[in-house]
Design a binder for these strands. Structure first.
Length: 603
RNA sequence: UGCCCGAUGGUGUAAUGGUAGCACGAACGACUCUGACUCGUUCUGUCUAGGUUCGACUCCUAGUCGGGCAGCCA
């Protein structure tokens, strides 16, 4: 069984529409670009989370719907915050999320390739084309690959009188910037000559000045109501080693300067980002428009980020959960990181179904986590093989079976399929059932096992509870029942109805496994709104039990997805499970529509 | 306070001047060898006030509320 089949789900294949796709569709209709090219541009300073999944699915989705391309590009312009560990995890997470869906759109570049000079309309121009990730040695794009051309563009801006070297300290720069309702003041260095700017900028690159001593700034308008147009910094001095370029550079471009140019160099047509960058868009356009570039310019479009309920989508806070050991690493199955969700057993297709389903707008919202749960269940319902497992066992003895008797039963693997397959399971005298499925004093409308009552053991037969056996301390040690073998599947009375059907495993054949039961990490829908989100961490987000499993589960692999019937969906923990020492994660429970009015009595 | 953006049921979204629809959720019911799935019924909405128009969720004006922006972060 494969976990990642080609996407057959309607929700995931139906072409979504939203305001950004509408714009793209119009551009396609106008033939504005030879090909639609988007990009996913993470900074390698943390792990990808469920919020990024929306951006990935939007960018790759637009590419695949338009026979276009989407480049994975690391926005690595700040060496002091970034790390190779993150470029590796991010690359793996992106590949996992789009596998079987948009791999054909993923743009990589040849190993070590940098933009090359080409001629466009007689004008010299830099460009770096993508290759398939399958190309030997192919790797993601890096903004750091463009440091040389970006430096060249800075020089060009200086020559055009649009940028200058400023000697103001960081503190002075801030003071000169003014405030939202107060215009800024011109830097005293604003009027330096082109010659002097060129000289100083060259010496910045040569390493003549310490960190913060000078910066390169765009010359725009210190009185602009948009803060980002008040002579924004383009380059800062940073004597720091970079994870990609080593010690080659001691000046690094800032996001605003590097991003639009990176987009241009890769031939991006639609640069899609979240709404906090909206106020930067005029600067994005200004830089590109003031360079006299020969090819069509990319444009930026913004959408609201995804914030699911009961989860945090802040790299900083997620990092805090990791460093303070609230969770066990970035890939803890309770984490909303892609690696955590993957480890928990969430199929990439379910994540896609979810993020595509919530749509794309500019409205800040919190998405009900039930929508996510529903997407996961819907996907897993068709993907998962059914198995029997008992999480919290209580023993029953079928008194009319001989101790060595073993009755073979056929259990359905995939009832969701048109032609389901079956496997053999064995009914023996001693059987484990779920302790929740027995009540000595049953609440109203309790369908399960109760004194004198009957219940069906799924795939086997109906049993009747005759006697409750307790030890001296009053604890129930076993339930003695009679099995009505004429009600076995395929036997004369198999269609006899009882109200309840429960799951079970043969005590003689059961294998033990550690099963980790997860609950939401936070107790409130909006943990980010709390003064201290650590105060609303759910103390019961993890519950570990030793479960009894049917023996076929002994050979489960990390790619398998199971539904333990009546309990939920489970998958092997890829990190901690080993043959002979199985560890399962509960990906998600089954929906529970019963919810008794009174809690079941403690046994 | 300056600029930018936004506002449709409990939640997320559609309707692009012409019947306010879909999904999640909730409630009830049917089915059931999974109290799941599936199916059926029901529930709840255009932020406010003006204006334009035969007609406004849609366009205009003002207001209210919410989000974003003053890192040499991205």
């Amino acid at each position: 069984m494969s976990v990642e089949p080609t996407d057959s789900s309607a929700a995931a294949t139906a072409a979504p529409t939203d305001f950004i796709r509408d714009i793209v569709a119009q551009h396609v209709a106008e033939n504005r670009y030879p090909k639609i090219v988007t990009r996913f541009p993470p900074e390698p300073n943390g792990y990808l989370h469920i919020g990024h999944a929306k951006s990935i699915c939007l960018n790759f989705g637009i590419a695949r719907e338009n026979a276009g391309q989407c480049n994975l590009r690391f926005d690595d312009t700040n060496p002091v915050k970034e790390d190779l560990e993150y470029v590796e995890s991010i690359t793996a997470d992106v590949k996992w999320l789009i596998a079987g869906w948009a791999d054909q759109c993923l743009g990589f570049k040849p190993k070590g390739a940098i933009p090359t000079v080409q001629s466009v309309n007689g004008q010299s121009d830099f460009f770096l084309d993508a290759v398939s990730p399958d190309t030997p040695g192919a790797e993601p794009f890096f903004a750091s690959d463009y440091f040389e051309p970006i430096y060249g563009y800075a020089v060009e801006l200086i020559k055009r009188g649009h940028a200058y070297v400023c000697d103001l300290s960081p503190e002075e720069t801030e003071a000169y910037r003014g405030s939202p309702d107060q215009p800024g003041r011109d830097s005293p260095y604003r009027t330096r000559s082109v010659v002097e700017n060129l000289d100083l900028f060259g010496r910045m690159r040569a390493g003549e000045f310490p960190n913060g001593a000078r910066s390169l700034r765009a010359k725009i308008d210190m009185a602009s109501p948009n803060i980002w147009l008040r002579d924004p910094l383009l380059y800062r001095i940073r004597h720091a080693s970079h994870h990609q370029t080593g010690d080659k550079w001691c000046i690094y471009p800032l996001y605003d300067f590097a991003h639009c140019l990176s987009d241009y160099l890769e031939g991006i047509t639609h640069s899609i980002c979240t709404v906090e960058f909206e106020v930067h868009r005029p600067l994005y356009d200004w830089i590109l428009e003031n360079l006299g570039l020969p090819r069509p310019l990319p444009h930026q479009y913004e959408f609201a980020k995804l914030v699911p309920g009961y989860t945090l989508v802040s790299k900083r806070k997620l990092l805090q959960l990791v460093t303070e050991k609230i969770v066990n690493g970035w890939d803890d199955p309770r984490m909303p990181t892609l690696s955590g969700l993957r480890r928990r057993g969430i199929p990439a297709s379910a994540l896609r179904r979810f993020v595509i389903g919530v749509g794309v707008t500019k409205f800040d919202s919190v998405t009900d986590i039930a929508v996510f749960d529903h997407a996961v269940r819907e996907e897993l319902n068709t993907l998962a093989q059914r198995r029997l497992a008992v999480l919290r066992p209580i023993k029953i003895v079928l008194t009319n079976l001989a101790p060595d008797e073993a009755i073979e039963c056929a259990a359905t693997n995939d009832p969701q399929n048109e032609n389901p397959t079956t496997r053999k399971i064995v009914l023996t005298r001693d059987v484990f059932i779920e302790s929740d499925d027995f009540a000595e004093v049953p609440p109203p409308k309790y369908f399960r096992l109760k004194p004198g009552g009957e219940v069906r053991l799924k795939y086997a037969c109906i049993v009747k509870l005759d006697e409750i056996v307790k030890n001296a301390a009053g604890t129930i040690t076993e339930l003695r029942c009679t099995a009505d073998l004429t009600t076995r599947s395929g036997h004369p009375n198999s269609d006899r109805k009882v109200k309840g059907t429960i799951h079970w495993v043969s005590a003689a054949q059961a294998i033990d496994a550690e099963v980790r039961l997860y609950d939401r990490l936070f107790t409130v829908a909006e943990p980010a709104a709390e003064d201290d989100f650590l105060q609303v961490v759910n103390p019961h987000s993890l519950d570990v039990v030793t479960a009894k499993l049917e023996p076929s589960l002994a050979t489960a692999t990390t790619d398998d997805r199971f539904q333990f019937e009546r309990l939920g969906y489970f998958a092997i923990d890829p990190r901690d499970s080993a043959p002979g020492k199985l560890v399962f994660n509960r990906t998600i429970s089954l929906k529970d529509a019963w919810t008794p009015k009174t809690p079941p009595p403690k046994k």
